[in-house]
Write a protein that binds this DNA or RNA. Structure first.
Lengths: 151, 151
DNA sequence: GTGCTTGCAAAATATTTGCAATGGC
DNA sequence: GCCATTGCAAATATTTTGCAAGCAC
């Protein structure tokens, strides 16, 4: 199921005075072919492309990721790893959320209709166009509660 | 209203084999005296301390912020600015959340009991000890919707 | 006294930017 | 042809780390 075709991507870019380049098309491809629930960092994407024999510079990747996040094409995830991850932004959002242990970084993903409802309503009330909503729960996991280690 | 006294902080540190140092006490002071709703980055805290004539190195600040976040004393905020912010973690949590424009970074804060309930329940179900929960809504604000600028 | 903690400088990590060349429109 | 975009290298920003000296326990 492809959300964007070459021409719909081009249309959306041109509307803002931007251009469709092979690099942008390739990057979007990768995200559209990514198994549901997967997400890539800039570095991940770079390696992925290298493997496929595509030669796109890291700068372009960073620029494209930011651009597509701002256009609402990609969803920017703030996980615990210290750098951003990206995934395709579903048109009918059914976002997952994160329960993160602040000591060992163990992360559990979960879904919630109620959160989506709250997000939708809040954005609507302020006149914002919703792209994404994520609940991050920071907590201490059972294992780390038992341990007195610094970790 | 001081949540931690010198001795309760010391107790909590010693329990894990850590030590109470003047630096740690001073840093906690700053956060406890911070007006409600304010938050500081590592750099902010460093400058704040310089102004007050305190001489604490940036390394120590980074180390202390991370330590206190992992202890649950401080709450780590992931705002849109590319670096972390910290604020005191209220014992009876009434967390605020963020509606963020991905183009201009304009951010609206809001509160929600339902989110807190969802966070509490989710953490509980997995046996996690809740420290903090934050909903981040990424969206496009009315102004940016109207503008075709690259932002 | 032991070993956690600090400050400093250097390193590591993640991301951005200046600029000439390229190539969409 | 105009100017957005790319790739490269250098710059920036943020955070981490090695190590000797200091200090909490």
């Amino acid at each position: 199921m492809s959300l964007y075709t070459t021409s719909s991507l081009k249309a959306e870019l041109n509307e803002r005075g931007w251009r469709l380049t092979p690099q942008r098309e390739t990057i979007l491809q990768v995200f559209q072919n990514l198994p549901k629930g997967n997400h890539l960092s800039a570095e991940d994407l770079y390696n992925e492309l290298q493997t496929d024999g595509e030669r796109i510079s890291l700068s372009t990747i960073y620029r494209t990721l930011k651009l597509m996040a701002r256009m609402g094409i990609l969803r920017e995830l703030e996980l615990a790893e210290g750098h951003k991850h990206y995934e395709i932004n579903q048109p009918y959002p059914y976002y997952h959320h994160h329960l993160i242990c602040v000591r060992c970084n163990k992360t559990i993903e979960f879904k919630s209709d109620s959160i989506l409802k709250i997000g939708t309503k809040t954005a609507q009330k302020e006149g914002y166009h919703l792209l994404d909503c994520q609940l991050s729960i920071h907590a201490i996991c059972p294992t780390c509660q038992r341990s007195l280690m610094p970790a």
